[in-house]
Design a protein around this nucleic acid. Structure first.
Lengths: 203, 203
DNA sequence: AAGCAGTGTTAACGCTCATTAACGTCGTGC
DNA sequence: GCACGACGTTAATGAGCGTTAACACTGCTT
């Protein structure tokens, strides 16, 4: 009854617009009046739905990290139960992350940009979720490429995240690949990076 | 006489600390008093050296984009004059970018985070410099991998930038690779990504 | 019909913060 | 020795903005 319903509730509207605005101009760069205007109400009306501006950011960031992690975990357990090899699981993780990056650009942007604006407790929570997500990837990557040290695997995973999250930085105009082509390209790039990480010292 | 000297002048001190602080907490998240305190003077004393807070950010961002571009151009012309093949030039570009990313983390962070806070003219300038830098890379990449479309090459270059610029996101503690190992790893990852971009449709 | 929960509105408060004013101090060239 | 530029300081100003207060309106529920 309280979690998710069909029609987008006002809260969800607000969160969506806030995410967009925060991503565009940064948390401090957006006023509550703007957020209100974006959903048709004005300024302090937001306080009927959220405790404050901080609360919106917190809910956004916790939500993002949470969704990423649970999505990843889901894919992992499905793969394990289905007896799928680690290599395919890695593909699945990549695909999930790409879907997220392409479909929720503003959130991806926020994700690594505004973390420091959170209250200590929220920031700790988000960081923990992020860390678990990274560790999930690291485990799978090391299963596929056993020769990688943990440190190298972790750095590589971070780098690949940077690669996959690069779509928001693409300049608006100009001929970009369509969504499908872009997803395919990013997937290939990520796999190429992992393969290169594993091929140590090859000249 | 005016460009670079041995001892760090006060202006340079201020810029360096401002860059660090902006990167850590965002442009709006840092007060002028903090910047002043970081260099031992306080608050409005900064106005003897800069027209305002905006001016500091502008100088930082223009400086970054400019240095990246001139560095890249230099390597390119050196390579062409030396009769070096495009493949080695690409390595050189990657190496230069990695040096920058590893040695000037705060600046890299600012580079794609606070661009929107600039006055229109400054922002246009920075974007133009960035675009030229990207185009420089795209040309070289297409020389090495002629089968790539311009659109794909550009998207790939952006993605590789995201990969190379990922170092600031690495969590502080934990066993990271040292600087040399990190540089080597990033280089290999970037080359791996480019190679993967070029190997279309390969299963 | 009364009452109340939900959802808005506008006006006011108070704090932060960039910027400016007004005022010192030190070192250097005449 | 003294003017003056370079460099700082603290106090004041003024705008922006998050938040709260006080006050409607709407639509159920009894």
């Amino acid at each position: 009854m309280s979690t998710t319903s069909a029609a987008p509730t006002r809260r969800e509207q607000i969160l969506k617009e806030a995410a967009r605005l925060f991503a565009e101009r940064g948390f401090h760069g957006v006023g509550v009046d703007e957020i209100g205007a974006a959903v048709g109400i004005s300024g302090p009306g937001l306080y009927r739905h959220f405790a404050g501006k901080d609360a919106m950011l917190a809910e956004l960031l916790v939500g993002i990290s949470g969704r990423l992690l649970t999505g990843g975990k889901l894919r992992a357990t499905e793969a394990r139960d289905g007896g799928v090899v680690a290599d395919e699981l890695l593909d699945s993780l990549i695909e999930g992350h790409i879907d997220f990056a392409l479909d929720d650009r503003p959130l991806i942007t926020l994700h690594d940009r505004e973390l420091d604006r959170l209250r200590d407790s929220d920031r700790k929570l988000v960081r923990q979720l992020q860390r678990q997500y990274v560790e999930l990837w690291v485990e799978v990557v090391r299963e596929v490429y056993p020769q990688l040290t943990e440190a190298v695997a972790r750095a590589t995973v971070h780098a690949v995240f940077g690669l996959l999250n690069s779509t928001p930085h693409l300049s608006r105009p100009g001929p970009l690949p369509g969504r499908g082509a872009m997803a395919g390209l990013l997937h290939r790039l990520a796999r190429g990076a992992f393969a290169a990480a594993a091929s140590d010292g090859v000249g």
